[in-house]
Design a protein around this nucleic acid. Structure first.
Length: 400
DNA sequence: TCTGGGGTCCTAGGACCC
DNA sequence: TCTGGGGTCCTAGGACCC
């Protein structure tokens, strides 16, 4: 709406296409009146609100605005912990970094964010759980304060699902135990909760009681990622070996491009296949050495494909990820491994092929960057053009 | 033509080692 | 006497977040 003022005040849906198995990412308040909400299948949203304006996500643009907002936060207070593209914790403990009233600091932040053309809501509390729930209280531009000593009373009447960390599965399990509110959760026996929920159990009890001891981490510059992956849901299921292999190569190339852009080389590859809505398989395998070239890790992904998939089984989604970036882990070599190693490194032809393939990857990156994403394509992408076209097309910002 | 994509963290079971 | 005990690492799957 910032970039398209003509959309203001109208039902607007951001998400994938209804005829390509898309879902709703978000929707304007006008569209929500019709019952449209995040994560709803797009076909359903279209039925509920046929007159909505549709657009796909423009993540590069969102990142730009996000960086501006986070910039305001670090300018106002030194300790900022960014948790996602649109959320952050910051420390306004009175007297710690400033003698100013926290409410005044937050009001000023809201004014400065509003000057950017977007809104933000803020919650103030003595720990992260309370502050986050408070921030949801009065959207889109509220400021909710939970005074020290009132945390437990503030949380007690709320449904357990309101607390982050409690999702569909845990929420259902708690319901079945007769635990519906955070107040009821706070009254549970920690040992019993540990038996039922593992280490998360006792933590839930403490957080629900408003007694969490949390500190704001200094994570404005988010650390190195631990994995980079791409996945695609196809508008129709794939069944032949040829097209599933083409899909693996296609998705591997997307991941390769992003790895090179981030300057990361990983030594483990993961293949993900989704057969239907609740049947997914993953397979992962270490690589001989860290790489950012899809020709290397994509080949291993194709090997994994043969182990977890039989031709004919419909494939709904294909994903390829790379992880283990912190250098190659020392690996025990057997006599046979060492013999293989000798052959590999002394084999000139193989070394050349490897280098040529990486040059090919880098060159296609550059061509796409300069002349657009369609400037150059692999044969398998051309052959299965219909299937490989994106459900969620990324905007130009992601490539430039 | 029912249900995305990019991540992180936790758990359970099996292989393996001494 | 047909099978101990403590530990680590790897892998797959699942819950969760936005």
């Amino acid at each position: 709406m910032l970039d398209h003022p003509e959309w203001r005040g109208k039902p607007l849906i951001v998400g994938g296409s209804a005829d390509k198995r898309g879902v709703v990412s978000t929707a304007s308040y006008e569209a929500r009146k019709y019952g449209v909400h995040s994560a709803m299948p797009s076909y359903q949203a279209r039925r509920l609100c046929p007159n909505a304006i549709w657009t796909h996500g423009h993540y590069g643009r969102y990142r730009e605005v996000s960086d501006q907002v986070m910039g305001i936060l670090v300018d106002e207070t030194p300790l900022v912990e960014q948790v996602s593209i649109d959320e952050a914790f910051f420390d306004v403990t009175p007297g710690r970094y400033s003698r100013e009233n926290p409410v005044d600091i937050c009001r000023r932040i809201q004014q400065r964010v509003s000057d950017l053309g977007v809104t933000c809501s803020i919650g103030i509390g003595t720990n992260k759980t309370v502050a986050k729930i408070a921030s949801e209280r009065d959207k889109p531009r509220g400021l909710t304060v939970v005074l020290p000593g009132t945390e437990a009373a503030f949380l007690a009447p709320l449904p357990v699902r309101d607390m982050s960390g409690i999702g569909g599965a845990t929420g259902k399990k708690l319901e079945e135990l007769g635990i519906h509110t955070l107040g009821e959760l706070a009254a549970q026996d920690p040992a019993e909760m540990e038996r039922l929920f593992g280490v998360a159990g006792p933590r839930m009890v403490v957080r629900a009681g408003g007694r969490e001891a949390s500190s704001v981490a200094n994570r404005y510059d988010e650390g190195e990622p631990k994995s980079v992956s791409n996945e695609r849901t196809f508008s129709r299921d794939l069944t032949t070996r040829e097209e599933v292999r083409a899909a693996v190569r296609h998705v591997a190339a997307l991941t390769g491009t992003r790895l090179r852009k981030k300057g990361l080389r990983g030594s483990e590859v993961t293949l993900k296949l989704k057969f239907d809505f609740n049947h997914t398989r993953t397979a992962q395998r270490p690589l001989d050495e860290p790489t950012d070239d899809e020709h290397v890790f994509g080949k291993v992904a194709l090997d994994l494909l043969d182990e977890v998939w039989q031709e004919g089984t419909p494939v709904r989604l294909v994903g390829v990820g790379v992880s283990e970036f912190h250098g190659a882990k020392p690996r025990q070599l057997s006599l046979f491994d060492e013999a293989d190693y000798e052959r590999d490194t002394s084999g000139r032809e193989e070394a050349h092929t490897k280098r040529d393939l990486r040059n090919l990857s880098v060159t296609t990156d550059l061509l796409r960057q300069r002349f657009g994403n369609g400037a150059v394509a692999y044969g398998h992408d051309l052959r299965f053009q219909e299937e490989m076209s994106d459900t969620h097309p990324r905007d130009r910002h992601d490539y430039t």
